[in-house]
């Protein structure tokens, strides 16, 4: 019963320190260069508030779509014993590893006004998704939903099916079991997946600028505003970056302490 921790070997300690420094120094650089005194002024400028507002609306809407469609999808994937399930699972998680710009091009080819589906939307309803706020939401949902699907599906697969079976033998219908037993069981994973998807949607850049373009007030979200401001007002770019950094950090702290640890134990 030796519980004393062995000392970390020196080479490993050194390399680990290099690793931490490599990841932390750029963020430190951002903080050191932040124009703190001008921060209120920079963050309340019309461009910044428009981008903040748009980012909040779009990321929340994209997350809502991801939850609405992604949870049923995760449920089906977890239950299915059909031979094609693995292929479908790979397909729906593809946006996770796909370069976002490629995702944007794919969206353009599918939902653009000459796209596979988009041409009908345009010809029949006059709906043009590129260069619209709806286009931003679509692009964000496209890249964010896989985070939710894999998180929830993982929880569903590892959940003990005996709880569901016990509820069923006690006379609960399928819907009741899902609502009263399954969903509460996977609640931590559902929340973690939702928050992860939201964070991904908030930071989305490549698919958005490729598919929805960049127009202040309509499609220019925070990351796009950072990119645009980098060329003119670096202080504004840093201030907006700081907002994204704080949001991401908050998400990670929340997840680590409340849900990631709980769901992995």
């Amino acid at each position: 019963m030796r519980t004393t921790r062995r000392a970390t070997p020196l080479p490993i300690g050194i390399l680990a320190t290099v690793g931490v420094a490599f990841l932390a120094i750029p963020l430190l650089g951002l903080l050191l260069r932040t124009p703190w005194s001008r921060l209120p002024e920079l963050l309340t400028s019309p461009v910044a508030t428009e981008a903040l507002r748009l980012s909040l609306i779009c990321s929340l809407a994209a997350t809502a779509i991801a939850v609405l469609v992604g949870v049923p999808l995760a449920w089906v994937l977890a239950q299915s014993r059909l031979p094609g399930t693995t292929a479908v699972r790979a397909l729906v998680t593809l946006p996770l590893v796909l370069p976002p710009v490629v995702g944007g091009v794919a969206l353009l080819l599918a939902f653009g006004r000459r796209g596979v589906v988009g041409q009908y939307l345009y010809d029949w309803f006059g709906v043009q998704l590129p260069f619209s706020t709806a286009g931003v939401i679509l692009a964000e949902a496209f890249v964010a939903m896989p985070f939710l699907v894999i998180t929830v599906e993982g929880a569903l697969r590892s959940a003990d099916p005996r709880y569901d079976e016990a509820a069923a033998t006690l006379g609960a219908g399928r819907w009741t079991v899902l609502r009263r037993v399954t969903l509460p069981l996977i609640a931590p994973a559902l929340i973690a997946g939702t928050v992860l998807a939201w964070a991904r949607a908030l930071g989305e850049f490549g698919a958005t600028i490729t598919f929805a373009g960049n127009l202040p007030g309509v499609t220019q979200t925070l990351p796009l505003a950072v990119y645009a401001a980098l060329d003119t007002d670096r202080d504004a770019a840093i201030a907006l970056s700081l907002v994204l950094l704080v949001a991401s950090l908050a998400v990670l702290l929340l997840l680590r302490d409340r849900y990631l640890r709980a769901s992995s134990s």
Binding site: G112, R114, P130, F131, T210, A212, G213, L215
Partner: peptide, 21 residues
């Protein structure tokens, strides 16, 4: 009133080529 302010020439041309604008 432009539909979008693109980051560079290339992204303007890509969207013109795709007949999106």
């Amino acid at each position: 009133s432009p539909a979008s302010l693109e980051p560079d020439v290339r992204s303007v041309l890509t969207k013109i080529e795709a007949d999106e604008a």
